[in-house]
């Protein structure tokens, strides 16, 4: 897998510093997932244990470590986070520290977990966000990528989350032509309303040409790299490595997308991981093009002329 992510050892590669440690991510389920999506950027599957679960103790330790660093938001991803048997306890513990977001495929959620999380959410002043990943707004477009029957299962999970008033953000990688977007999104929104999700929240992501997606379509072309020229006048706060790091069971990595890259591990502690990263990867190019692809809409950094006070 690492072979798809060659490090370009070139002094001209732009370096980005951790300007502000605002987001701490956790690869909480490693690369273990109950699904085997054909476009997964880190090739997660029921058998891929190249990254393992994080324990509640490990997460607690990192949360405490994040306080003096002034971290703001906590995000949990995998794999499928809810395969981690301590996931509910982990989210409850996190809500003591700050806002928590979990990225799930919504196919394994249990009522008992959601009730406990709803109680913890009600007791906390911080938001608990669910982001549900699907890939196509119908079985015809979703299931060829994520597996037979997964659209119906995800939809059941979404309805369940809505019943507990979580207002999940439905996140889809754009597997349709951009010109069709208004129609595709409009139809899906209507369908969600029919299913009982009265005010659907959506987040559309660009496709990342990494992991399993390399086989499904293609990888990044060598020309799809960030150059020093491109960084001139660019608002670096649009890049996630400017303001985030991710904890994995191998150490602290630069960003949620590149955990399998050979240069991704920056240190074993959060403080150690506060060092510059070279933007040598094709995925960096996608992040550059679209900006803030991993963050919640509420954490959007507007960029533009007003990005920094003068």
């Amino acid at each position: 897998m690492a072979a798809t992510l060659p490090v370009i050892d070139d002094p001209r590669v732009p370096q980005v510093e951790l300007a502000s440690f605002d987001q701490l991510w956790f690869q909480v389920a490693g690369t273990l997932c109950n699904l085997t999506c054909h476009h997964c950027f880190i090739s997660c599957s029921p058998k891929n244990d190249s990254f393992g679960f994080l324990s509640l103790d490990e997460v607690q330790q990192r949360l405490a470590e994040s306080v003096p660093l002034g971290v703001n938001e906590y995000y949990f991803t995998g794999g499928e986070p809810f395969l981690n048997p301590q996931m509910v306890e982990i989210l409850i513990a996190t809500l003591e520290y700050g806002p928590a977001t979990v990225l799930t495929n919504a196919t394994v959620l249990k009522d008992e977990w959601l009730q406990r999380l709803a109680d913890a959410d009600a007791a906390s002043r911080f938001s608990l966000e669910f982001r549900v990943s699907i890939d196509g707004f119908s079985p015809e477009t979703n299931d060829p990528i994520r597996g037979e029957g997964t659209f119906a299962r995800a939809l059941r999970g979404i309805v369940k989350l809505v019943e507990y008033d979580f207002l999940p953000i439905i996140t889809a990688a754009r597997s349709w032509p951009e010109a069709d977007e208004a129609r595709v999104v409009g139809e899906f929104t209507e369908m969600l309303r029919r299913e009982g999700y009265r005010r659907p929240r959506l987040k559309i992501l660009p496709m990342l040409h990494l992991g399993a997606e390399v086989e499904r379509t293609h990888g990044y072309r060598p020309s799809e790299r960030i150059t020093a020229e491109m960084m001139k006048g660019f608002d670096r706060s649009q890049l996630i490595c400017d303001h985030a790091r991710i904890v994995t069971d191998r150490g602290v990595c630069v960003c949620p997308i590149l955990i399998e890259a050979p240069d991704a591990v920056l240190g074993q502690s959060l403080a150690e991981a506060d060092r510059p990263f070279g933007l040598s990867h094709g995925a960096c190019y996608t992040c550059y093009q679209y900006g803030a692809i991993c963050s919640n809409p509420s954490a959007a950094s507007g960029g533009g002329h007003a990005a920094r006070p003068t």
């Binding site: 700050g98 806002p99 002043r125 911080f126 938001s127 509420s298 950094s301 920094r308």
Partner: peptide, 14 residues
């Protein structure tokens, strides 16, 4: 940042 959204429910004390 002039256009940063700092919401009550997504801002940790630290």
């Amino acid at each position: 940042r002039t256009n940063e959204f700092v919401w009550e429910s997504t801002a940790s004390d630290h």
